[in-house]
Amino acid sequence: MKFYGGKSVTDVALTINNKKHIQNVPDHMLLVDFLRETLKLTGTHIGCDTSQCGACVIHVNGKSIKSCTMLAVQADGCEITTIEGLADGDILHPMQQAFHENHGLQCGFCTPGMIMTAIELIEGNTDITEQQIRHGLEGNLCRCTGYQNIVKSIQEAARIEHH
């Protein structure tokens, strides 16, 4: 765990995966560390810590953001969704299901971020083209799949959503 010394702390109140949290956080704590270290929501990954890989993508007020490049105090009052908030018990979110069925992952390290980006990507745009999907994944890196099956998974999720 990273050491977050320093004297400035702030109370933040935020909703994460439909659950309200009030927590005292160091002002300079990154949102991703708050999720992973304080709340033990380790589904959100850290791949690079330099806003390049997208493994840390979550939704803040419905928009995808890289949680390694936002402070926990900046999320005060926000609605947050992480990968843990998608499934309904044992029933996977349609995007998770599509990744599952289309072999959209190998090691799985990039997957939480990919899925969070993908959900935003097809929202209100279910007739999205392959080209648009590839463009939309600019901020997410995968070292295993070569992206083909990720694109296929997102296409299928969009198709299902469309009907």
Binding site: G54, V57, K63, I65, K66, T117, E120, L121, E138, G139
Partner: peptide, 9 residues
């Protein structure tokens, strides 16, 4: 500009 996540912030 950048990627989606950069554009959102």
């Amino acid at each position: 500009i950048g990627d989606r996540q950069v554009r959102n912030r």
